[in-house]
Write a protein that binds this DNA or RNA. Structure first.
Length: 206
DNA sequence: AAAATGATCCTT
DNA sequence: AGGATCATTTTC
């Protein structure tokens, strides 16, 4: 079990996207520890990516953290209701991120069930705990207060437990819900673990 | 100051 | 297929 350090994050976004699958996201919160294996992500590669919040280098209060070096947390709110958790990648002034879309719950399942507002711990609920970007934020209790936090710290971080995924078990497909971005909507920049039942319900190839 | 726009989820 | 529900950004 080793915590990923700075040099893991300050690299090519696509390479990290593939390598981060199978790693474990941990939140050491006041109420207890929750963790889950990352099974689905999407790459957003900045100035040249019409689907990215930093397309054409758009720099606002919201996107500011993306311009830092890799390893920091980018949290944003969508639809006024939900939060999405992203990992900042690459070197300073290369505003790229990886959106974490789904987790396979590992630790603190009872706490996650509670945060999600489910009544009981059953298989169906466990599958629905974190199989979507906003769901995992609720289950892990990640919100705006974590904007800009350092993944190299002790609160929220990612660890490697030597879980191995064969390269052929990583599926690349188009990203979800970015129809507004024209041709970029077709780019295969969503990555998930083949056959994993915790991947989000969005259209999924065989 | 006001309008438009969602990197979603849940229910019907 | 549609409603919830509001922060962030853009436009006037």
């Amino acid at each position: 079990m080793t915590k990923l350090s700075r040099n893991f994050y300050t690299r090519n976004t696509f390479q990290i996207s593939r390598e981060i699958l199978g790693k474990i996201l941990v939140h050491n919160s006041q109420k207890g520890i929750t963790s889950g294996r990352i099974v689905e992500v999407e790459a957003y590669v900045g100035p040249n990516d019409p689907a990215s919040h930093t397309y054409l280098n758009r720099r606002t209060q919201r996107t500011e953290i993306q311009f830092r070096e890799g390893g920091f947390i980018y949290v944003y709110q969508v639809y006024g209701i939900h939060f999405c958790f992203n990992v900042v990648t690459e070197a300073e002034n290369k505003p790229e991120v990886i959106l974490v879309r789904a987790l396979e719950p590992i630790e603190g399942i009872k706490l996650m069930i509670k945060r999600r507002g489910f009544k009981e711990v059953n298989q169906r609920n466990i599958f629905n705990l974190a199989n979507g970007p906003a769901k995992l934020c609720e289950a892990m209790e990640i919100n705006k207060t974590h904007y800009g936090a350092d993944l190299c710290g002790n609160k929220i971080y990612i660890v490697d437990d030597n879980f191995h995924i064969k390269p052929e078990d990583i599926i690349a497909s188009p990203r979800i819900n970015i129809d507004y971005s024209g041709k970029a909507a077709e780019y295969p920049w969503r990555f998930f673990i083949k056959g994993n039942p915790f991947v989000s319900k969005a259209k999924q190839k065989k």
